[in-house]
């Protein structure tokens, strides 16, 4: 993952150095130390470079593509494939596919991950993981074909295919995140009188957020990619442009479909990385 951009610039080791220096009376003395994080820090977590570099690149690529299309001479077949708002419709369908599938992935995989880490269901974890693994190991296009045979052509089959394909990263990261929590910390939480639900919502999940979000980000990017296959099941999306380009041997159509897919994937990844930085609980970043 390339999320290093959000690290706090320097200063993190000074804090640790205090261990042997203070205590006793010395604590009341002012210490030359970074101030406690205030709400204002949220803005500082994201560096300017992180904020501007990728969008600028994307805008440049899209602009170049647009300029190229303005001067390109398109034959009737290409014209037909790209006119009447077909491009924006395909793009919009693609975004919809991605958003809806990701939503379902989240509401399936995260609760499932939580459930599988509870003592009562822990034994079922290998089975569930094996199933999720099969989901991802199956070639997406084969899975889609099977689903179309079963459910008929349409967006539903495409969506289910995408979801099955993307459950694994979120599920395994949720489980890994929850399992990585220090057992003594959880015991302390119970020891001070938290109910099991309280321990989960106040301690376990917040601490697992970084890993869960990393899984979500992977799933999002996967979904943008898999959604291009939805066209084979009649689900629409940018895959339509790509297949049209290939079957009719029209380079401009193919290129436009590909560039838009790539740009969308990068944009989604960038947004997810921002979300990762913003949603990560404060206090975890020092020394991690």
């Amino acid at each position: 993952m390339s999320t290093t951009g959000g690290r706090r610039p320097g200063g993190e080791h000074e804090v640790r150095g205090l261990v042997f220096r203070d205590d006793g009376e010395a604590e009341t003395e002012p210490e030359p130390e970074p101030r406690p994080p205030s709400p204002a820090r949220a803005g500082r977590r994201i560096s300017r470079q992180k904020l501007t570099l990728l969008p600028a690149l994307l805008i440049a690529v899209l602009l170049a593509t647009w300029l190229w299309f303005r001067q390109a001479e398109l034959d009737p077949v290409s014209e037909n494939a790209l006119s009447d708002g077909r491009v924006s419709k395909a793009l919009w369908q693609h975004v919809e596919l991605t958003v809806i599938s990701t939503f379902f992935v989240l509401i399936i995989a995260i609760p499932l991950g939580v459930l599988l880490t509870r003592a009562a269901f822990r034994k079922a974890t290998p089975v569930a993981m094996a199933l999720a693994n099969t989901g991802q190991a199956t070639p997406a296009i084969g899975l889609l074909a099977l689903l179309v045979i079963w459910l008929g052509i349409g967006r539903r089959a495409a969506l289910i295919g995408i979801i099955v394909y993307a459950v694994l990263p979120v599920l395994s990261n949720t489980i890994a995140g929850l399992k990585a929590n220090d057992p003594t910390l959880l015991e302390a939480a119970r020891g001070i009188g938290m109910s099991p639900l309280g321990v989960l919502t106040r301690v376990e999940l917040p601490l697992a957020v970084p890993l869960i979000l990393a899984g979500v980000r992977t799933a999002l990017v996967l979904n943008v990619g898999t959604a291009t296959l939805a066209t084979f099941g009649g689900g629409g999306g940018l895959g339509v442009l790509i297949t049209t380009g290939i079957t009719n041997q029209r380079m401009p159509v193919l290129v436009l479909g590909s560039i838009l897919t790539v740009a969308l994937a990068l944009l989604v990844d960038w947004l997810a990385s921002l979300a990762e930085l913003l949603l990560r609980p404060r206090g975890l970043e020092v020394g991690t």
Binding site: T184, E187, G191, G193, L207, P281, G283
Partner: peptide
Amino acid sequence: VGLRRKVGYAIQSSGLFPH
């Protein structure tokens, strides 16, 4: 749960919630 809220519990430093 009710019992533990009436009994203070302190362990090694790992018992503080880092977030």
